[in-house]
């Protein structure tokens, strides 16, 4: 093989490794489980002829190493996943790009371009967050007890507040624990306000329980159990811990909100007795 051909092959291998790392990173940071990310990277690296590829994925990092068949110098790539959220569109795009690349429909450069464009895309717009949260919070009370329209109105108001908070906290990186704590505190407080305005029509328990539902780390728990059942105990336990921290966040917020509400009720009752 000529020197030019070897150099071209090395460039291609590096590009494929970059593609695999990008796709794996996008999957992990968008809410896919570790096994899916690892499998996708294996499919992509399977397109490199010959050589030996080793891929290791844990919930917060990706490692790839490729050793050429002629035992030349190995090529490695490491990526750290700093933060994650659930964005299924990105999971879909990473999956689609890997499928099309493996089928030979697009080349490695086109695949990398598509992933870069998707990564640079803006987050969900505010209107979509508000509509989504209002739909969730307004419909959940219908499954929690007796159908009461005023409960749905109160929870819809909480939904608007939660969407605004989620949107605002995107810009400030304070961690999921504090975001969940502040959101659940605000939800319990708004629910209490609604109960004060309409004491006979609104159930505070239903309002608070409804507002907790969107904060529940369902996707994290599912991914954790999936990882554990697939034998990846490091990723699984890491994700379980993450779910625990997120849950503790909204539990602490709701707890603080409930205590604040109790103190307000008690102090107003005391003021009533005094005056």
């Amino acid at each position: 093989m000529s020197a030019e051909a070897v150099a071209q092959q090395n460039r291609d291998v590096k590009a494929v490794i970059e593609l695999a790392t990008m796709a794996g990173g996008m999957l992990l940071s968008s809410g896919a489980d570790t096994k899916r990310a690892e499998e996708t990277m294996e499919y992509i690296m399977g397109q490199v002829p010959g050589g030996n590829t080793v891929i290791t994925v844990i919930s917060s990092s990706i490692f790839i190493s490729y050793t050429p068949e002629d035992e030349g110098s190995p090529v490695s790539s490491i990526r750290k996943i700093k933060s994650w959220s659930t964005d299924i569109e990105k999971v879909h795009v990473a999956n689609d790009v890997s499928r099309r690349f493996c089928a030979g429909e697009i080349n490695v450069r086109e695949a990398i371009d598509i992933l870069r464009k998707t990564q640079d895309k803006k987050d969900i717009p505010l209107w979509m967050l508000i509509v989504g949260y209002v739909m969730v919070t307004a419909c959940t009370p219908l499954f929690l007890g007796e159908v009461q329209i005023m409960n749905c109105v109160a929870t819809a108001l909480c939904g608007v507040l939660m969407a605004l908070l989620v949107y605002a906290f995107r810009k400030v990186n304070i961690g999921a624990f504090f975001v969940n704590a502040i959101m659940s505190f605000a939800a319990v407080f708004i629910g209490f306000g609604a109960v004060l305005v309409f004491p006979n029509n609104i159930d505070l328990t239903i309002v608070a329980a409804t507002c907790i539902c969107p904060m529940f780390p369902g996707v994290t728990i599912v991914n954790a159990v999936r990882d554990i059942l697939h034998g990846d105990y490091i990723s699984g336990s890491g994700r379980l811990l993450e779910a625990l921290v997120r849950t503790l966040g909204f539990v602490m917020g709701a707890l603080a909100g409930s205590i604040a509400v109790t103190v307000i009720i008690f102090s107003t009752g005391l003021l009533g007795i005094i005056f």
Partner: peptide, 17 residues
């Protein structure tokens, strides 16, 4: 209808294509 809207809401929050 509520079950459908509930899932649609979760779909929007989680950015389903």
């Amino acid at each position: 209808v509520a079950a459908f809207l509930l899932c649609l809401g979760y779909g929007m929050i989680n950015n389903i294509p």
